[in-house]
Design a protein around this nucleic acid. Sequence first.
DNA 1: AGTGAGCGC
Length: 160
Amino acid sequence: MAMAMRLPAISRAVTEVASASASAPVGLRRLFCSNASRFSFLSPQAESQTPARPQAEPSTNLFVSGLSKRTTSEGLRTAFAQFGEVADAKVVTDRVSGYSKGFGFVRYATLEDSAKGIAGMDGKFLDGWVIFAEYARPREQSQPYQPQNNMSRPPYYGNR
DNA sequence: AGTGAGCGC
């Protein structure tokens, strides 16, 4: 039958999409795996073949990307405040130009609020751009000087 | 930059 011939093709296509999304860059994976557009019709095989994407564990702090360059910290706070108490909102900007880097961070007062913030804002439009809200990875604390463990040998500047 | 994936000083 025609359907009997088509079903495997469809299943294969879906599997290919799933594997492609698994190996694609993070930004591209979001097209398939973001909370706003997660595919729910994948077979259990396809689901199990899709490796767990690097996702930070729940936090009050959110990483928000896909922002319009015109979105400001105040606009970020206002948008996310609809879903909980925002303790801090910051659009990361270039230090010299002051230009937005297109992403930022939103810290909620509680874990419950941050979860509602993701549910409410991930995949939604803000200033004309589809934004992505996810739990922020714990920030790498800047250590003033981190010896590379090469201190046992004096530096070699050439000239023997 | 007319930048468009990313994890801040």
